[in-house]
Design a protein around this nucleic acid. Structure first.
Lengths: 340, 340
DNA sequence: AAACGTAATTAGAACGTTACAATAAACTTT
DNA sequence: AAAGTTTATTGTAACGTTCTAATTACGTTT
């Protein structure tokens, strides 16, 4: 790239010391007299020296790069999570390589390989739908630290951080039931994911606890997009006894529901109660404001980041999982005016 | 990291050839017999060899890493753009390091330095508010290829790719005027940015072309957040003669406007016309659907990516700017029922 | 003042790759 | 069959760091 760049020997010459001393000075070693360190740093600044992490990585056989792989960055929740993750890693002195897989396992494979060739110290991943343990087998074998968020890697022995989906959805469902709602639907999500199964369990638990008859509930999965959810909800309300409350898989689904119902007889927050999950930024300023389970994405990010960094420092650290308890944020979408 | 990893000499030994041959084989050099290459590749696969980009970068004095710095990833438009950029770079064989600056120049400085130490081949940046040429002076001097998107770096000689804001806003404004709207506002954006100034010019041009009196227009900047826009629009409609049409700086502002008006006497798409800019995914499925200028973010990303890659291949390439003409997508928010 | 211990500095090999120059092998020419 | 050409392969020196071991410079103790 550069015609000829400034290196440690250059700085050494300018400062009148040896290569080794410069190296020591750059890492602020206590073995050096502060006076010497200052002298070196001054020379470095003067020459416009820039540290070559790549060379250092090679020699040290380690790096401060993290690979972050996200399944769906078009979903604002994942975007918010990615931002928080990047910020935490950055604060901890790491640099992050980022890739969006769009739920494509092949793409996931590809970037995983690319990141490894570039020598990332560890991987933080929100896995694509259908990810198998074997997708990571060779990386685990090689001892690459991996932390998964939002979605576990089935059968894999690696740290996993996520909201407590079951508990969260159960709470959201109970919130609707508490208002006297007896006909309920759980809408959205992809059947084949653990995150879906967990939520479904939470929904069923709340329904069961309330003694609601199975005839009065419906569970309809659908892709996690506004469009799909919008279409799904339209089918839902065409039935004879449409639900009075819809527990959505996540906010994106809830937004889709809101859109799907806008020209119908059912006004969200009036005739029909809706809850989301993720508490994305927009919940506050959408109309009606969306009640949602707040997953504390910043805390999730912190835990994930810390887990990975711990594992980097001590690779033999045992696997640890964290389920963060989400909190119900009640806004207008889930308050049923007609029942008040 | 790894106890002991497989390197080129290991593969060489296994394949019964020299280091050099393995290196050549890995880059699929035509200097080698296909038979030899196959033999080497087989050995490499068998041993689980993984290429060390870092070492190669050091030797070659080049890299295939791109630094991507974005000012506000919480804005879905930038998220969509970042995704598209990452995809294009990935397809071209580059790996991207990502950072969000949250419009913070200090953070921008910090990641810029970090990316350089890591040896990125080039930088793609959507600069933070207030970015100066001098923030990049040392990088330009060192010959680091930089491409800016969405916002120019004032006074800097570097490629710049963005939508044609002036033209776009002019068109959006004309669209409202064509419906017979005579009282107009341009809302949102930060005064100190070039992107704001350009849009303002477009707004004024349309207004002037239509011969609309200056008393009937208002221009009120505000931070690019839903909340700020929501509050700003509430002030706007408290006046004696509130505008009938609001041209918004971008979709986020328009969403805020929509929210701010939800409990007012003015129904968007009925009593008051609103346009956005960016045509983010949600425009389609928000109610009412938001008319917006489509910037063709995928094409922007392509151009930006290509520009940077060209510059990597030929550093002496002259600076080239691209303004992509956006397209008006009319939806319900900008159709005034009361005027029909 | 000699001997020792500690503190500060440095020489030099290594990290995993590439690329130049050099060699070896295989064909053409005469 | 010797010389010349092309085609394949390889030895070796870098790239910019770090780290161990070796060296030098200082105070302290006797």
């Amino acid at each position: 790239m550069k015609s000829t760049s400034i290196t440690i020997p250059d700085v050494a010459k300018a400062a009148g010391v040896s290569k080794s001393t410069v190296s020591l000075a750059l890492q602020n070693s206590p073995k050096l007299r502060t006076e010497t360190k200052k002298k070196v740093m001054k020379a470095a600044k003067q020459l416009g020296y820039v540290y070559n992490q790549g060379a250092a990585n090679l020699r040290r056989r380690s790096s401060s790069m993290i690979g972050m792989i996200i399944n769906d960055l078009t979903n604002p929740f994942f975007a918010e999570l990615a931002i928080a993750l990047e910020r935490h890693f950055s604060e901890a002195g790491y640099v992050v390589m980022m890739a969006n897989t769009s739920e494509d396992r092949e793409q996931q494979d590809k970037v995983l390989r690319a990141f490894c060739e570039h020598g990332v110290a560890g991987i933080l991943i929100s896995p694509a739908v259908g990810t198998q343990q074997q997708d990571f087998a060779s990386y685990f074998a090689r001892g690459l630290p991996i932390v998964s968020v939002m979605q576990p890697i089935p059968g894999a022995e690696c740290d996993y951080i996520a909201p407590d989906y079951r508990q969260g959805i159960q709470e959201a469902t109970a919130h609707l039931i508490d208002q006297g709602i007896t006909r309920l639907a759980f809408l959205g999500g992809r059947l084949e994911t653990a995150a879906y199964q967990e939520r479904k369990k939470g929904f069923l638990k709340a329904v069961e606890d309330a003694g609601i008859d199975a005839d009065n509930i419906q569970i309809v999965p659908c892709p996690v997009t506004r469009k799909a959810a919008s279409e799904a909800v339209q089918q839902l309300i065409e039935q004879e006894h449409p639900p009075q409350g819809i527990v959505c898989y996540c906010d994106i689904v809830a937004f889709g529901v809101n859109f799907g119902l806008r020209n119908s007889a059912f006004k969200v927050g009036v005739d029909i109660a809706v809850t989301g999950f993720d508490d994305v930024l927009a919940c506050d300023t959408v109309s009606p404001p969306l009640s949602s389970m707040r997953p504390f994405s910043d805390q999730l990010a912190r835990l994930a980041c810390d887990s990975l960094i711990q594992k980097l420092k001590d690779p033999s650290r045992p696997v640890s999982n964290h389920l963060v308890k989400p909190k119900l944020i009640v806004r207008e979408s889930s308050i049923l005016a007609t029942l008040k």
